[in-house]
Design a protein around this nucleic acid. Structure first.
Lengths: 203, 203, 203, 203
DNA sequence: AATGAATGAGAGTTCATTCAT
DNA sequence: AATGAATGAACTCTCATTCAT
């Protein structure tokens, strides 16, 4: 038992090693520009060895993205859904920004990776889909509350999505590492102000 | 003379054809996923023929991007630099948004193309660098005017840059095609409000 | 015109060269044991060059087989279908044996190549299917004539098929090259006697 | 002692399991198309475990073929060599056909496997060589008896060999499973008639 | 006895690019 | 000006096989 456990841990450690090597390269050079050979070299393995741990190159990316979304999901688990909409948005925004700053590489893979390179189906896409559902749910609630004024879900969703992309570009450029807590809060307030229509209801 | 002129025009027409074919494919599938063969096929040429017009694949991208920046620059040439800062921003923003909506493909290549795929030096990068300089100049002027309050150039520059990326994602997703003129104006006002600090000076 | 004709001929010559190289190797070592690299080497080409002429490895085999069946079909074109059944069989048998002796490599690829390795659909399989249809037609006619006695099509078809396989093994072993014309005729008579049931009708 | 015996039996049981798994796959898909991994999976072993029982993939095939020839040899051990030639042929033919019908998989591996895939030397080829010797002996005797008329050994040997290949193709196609005893006898008579020359002596 | 881990070799295939014509 | 032909390098991925445990 103890032995098998240690073996499994060792196995997991090696998977991690490969995943980390791949993550570094993917972020630095882009999925298409990274070959299995280079991942193998970066992880000090033979190319063939990688295939003991992952079915193929796409699966490595899928794993990395899935891990990112799981990591992200854990942070938000404790959030109470009963908060007033503005507070819900603030809290979500805060955790989102914090996550981006703490995990710029995960963030990059989660939000900068184009659809061509990503498996949108299968077990490993599940967490990203769930994440998207949560996001749409939240948008729906806040819009329903009238907080943003007379506006449809989709507009808000796209506005926030654009914000995510903008943020992603800052994170990728290395700029977003330096936001202090108060800067984060201010940024969120600005985003809220940005999205609210004149006639939007109070909190 | 007249003949050579016609020949040159014909030559230019063919370059155009290749560039347009490449643009379509790059936007649709991403630089890495488009082969020279496919560009050639799309342009009804042999792969080898492309090389009479462009040194290599990267150069095609560089040309496209350069053209985009030139096209973009022309629009703004007539702008008077003596406008008050807020108005300068508004006008720039308007032309920028309009450009994005009118030329989504150019816009995509100009602002969604990752550094790995782009020549950052050389003649063909010049226009993009000039564009960036103008942008920084404008930011410098507006910041100097105190319009945004007590804030450094870089912060505003990065904020606007993030906005560009956000916009790019909307353009790419096809969402940004539908903005009406009044929506554009409203969006700009929001961006200004977004960027201004509480103590920012009036116009 | 003349030039383009010469060019096409040259092209065809090179295709031939590759096909012949592949044929030699396939017959000698078996489809699975021959790599594209080896075909290329045998034909004094780079591996990539092969792909200018053939889509992939299977297609080379398909071409070779198709050519074999076409070559085979040409031989039998002049045969008159109105012959009495026994004569029809004799003539077919003769041309078949002759073909096998004259073209042992084609024969090997046509009748010794397992289904796993062969495209059974598509244009390049057409000739083999037609060949099979003709064969079944002939069997049908001869059986209907009562020549073989009270026996169903399938039994005769399988019997002849088994004969083909047996012959193929002789051809492959190099033994069948030595049959003289009279030996061929005798062999055919024996096959007919072999297949006829006691109560079979006369010619 | 008793323990070591049990251990050996267990070992033998596992060898059997691997061999049977390999046999199924080889027959179904062809030697080249079956990987050690798949044999291992089919036998519920790890790939590496196979190598404790067999030196390599070829050796598995050699073992299977050898077993086939041994099984085949056992059947014929009791045959009396003093029979008249025709009767000897009949008996051999009968046991041969029966073997093919009872053990189509063994039969397939024994007679459909191409030379490239087979070890023709070494201990494991011994039984097949012995089988071939017996066969040649028998042919020699029968030819010497004048039964087939004025014909040399090799011609008869090759004729029968071609018959074996033909039969093999029927067995492989699943057609030969249905021969009744009387059909077997009739088939043998036909083969004898097929091989006899007009001037062949009586029994 | 059995296996997980690992690898070198090589498979088929595609690519950007060059060059003689 | 344009292309057909050609290639070296690289790709993803699979294989039979070995070895420490």
């Amino acid at each position: 038992m103890a032995i098998s456990k240690r073996v499994k841990k060792e196995q997991e450690r090696k998977r991690r090693f490969i995943l980390d090597a791949a993550k570094r390269l993917f972020v630095l050079e882009g999925f298409e520009n990274v070959s299995m050979r280079r991942i193998a070299a970066e992880a000090d393995y033979s190319p063939a060895a990688i295939y003991r741990y992952f079915r193929n190159k796409r699966e490595i990316l899928s794993h990395l993205r899935n891990e990112g979304f799981i990591k992200f999901g854990l942070r938000r688990e404790q959030r109470s859904d009963s908060l007033p909409p503005a507070e819900l948005l603030r809290q979500t925004g805060r955790s989102f920004l914090q996550f981006a700053m703490d995990n710029p590489d995960d963030f990059h893979l989660m939000f900068c990776t184009s659809c061509n390179e990503v498996d949108l189906e299968g077990e490993l896409a599940a967490e990203s889909l769930r994440s998207y559902e949560r996001f749409r749910d939240m948008v729906g609630k806040v819009v329903a509350s009238g907080y943003f004024g007379d506006v449809d879900d989709e507009t808000v969703a796209f506005g926030l999505w654009a914000g995510v992309q903008g943020l992603a570009s800052l994170v990728t450029s290395g700029r977003a590492k330096v936001f202090s807590e108060s800067e984060v809060d201010e940024l969120i307030e600005r985003v809220l102000r940005f999205l609210r229509r004149p006639g939007g209801g109070g909190e």
